[in-house]
């Protein structure tokens, strides 16, 4: 849940990037980190294995500016995508304000996308959240690869509720900030409602 501090006039929110292994969650954060002004970001932390697979989480604190005199800070987290790290994924979802599902557009990763989406729904439910009720956006990543499935098919399988969705190529940055802006807006709108 967001944390409102009247004393320091800050509002802090937590956004989690979810998705199957190697879909580009960490790449999204790395791109955001590289393209953000130094004064607007903190240190990026990656708890990864020696082969640079996420072991626990990546963490990137971002400042977006002020709303009505309150500084808005977003804490971006990724989860480890590999199936056997499920215990870690559950922990990272605690206190989440918004979720970005990063789908791997490659046709051969469709099963992995569906499995991860179902895993997200289950793990959120365990924490008392309903995926259909929290701020949620989907990113179809790796659109630049030749074996990418059609967007229509990805939408049909992964986005039956038509939540905001974006095509992306995170390695070169396409769609990365569009996705971030969309989820940040949804989180702030939820806050406005008193969520």
């Amino acid at each position: 849940m967001s944390f409102i501090n009247y004393s320091s006039r800050e509002i802090n929110c937590k956004i989690v990037y979810y998705g199957p292994g190697l879909c580009g969650k960490t790449t999204n954060l790395q791109y955001i980190y590289n393209k953000t002004n130094p004064e607007a970001k903190g240190k990026m932390i990656s708890l990864a294995t020696e082969t640079e697979r996420t072991l626990f989480f990546d963490f990137l604190p971002l400042s977006l500016g002020e709303i009505r005199g309150f500084k808005t800070r977003f804490h971006l987290y990724t989860v480890p995508g590999q199936v056997f790290y499920d215990a870690s994924r559950k922990l990272i979802l605690k206190g989440v304000d918004g979720v970005v599902f990063v789908a791997d557009s490659q046709i051969e990763r469709m099963e992995a996308n569906l499995e991860s989406m179902e895993n997200l729904r289950t793990n959120l439910a365990e924490q008392g959240y309903d995926l259909d009720k929290i701020p949620f956006v989907i990113q179809y990543n790796k659109r630049d690869l030749p074996n990418a499935a059609g967007v229509d098919e990805l939408k049909r399988l992964l986005n039956p509720r038509s939540v905001p969705d974006f095509e992306a190529s995170a390695t070169v940055g396409n769609g990365v900030f569009d996705t971030l802006k969309a989820i940040a807006k949804l989180v702030l709108t939820e806050l406005k409602k008193g969520g």
């Binding site: 849940m1 967001s2 944390f3 409102i4 501090n5 009247y6 004393s7 605690k94 008392g128 959240y129």
Partner: peptide
């Protein structure tokens, strides 16, 4: 929602 939102006010913050 799972947890209640944390709101920190001036007085409690000072304490």
């Amino acid at each position: 929602m799972a947890d209640q939102q944390m709101v920190m006010y001036e007085e409690e913050f000072r304490q």
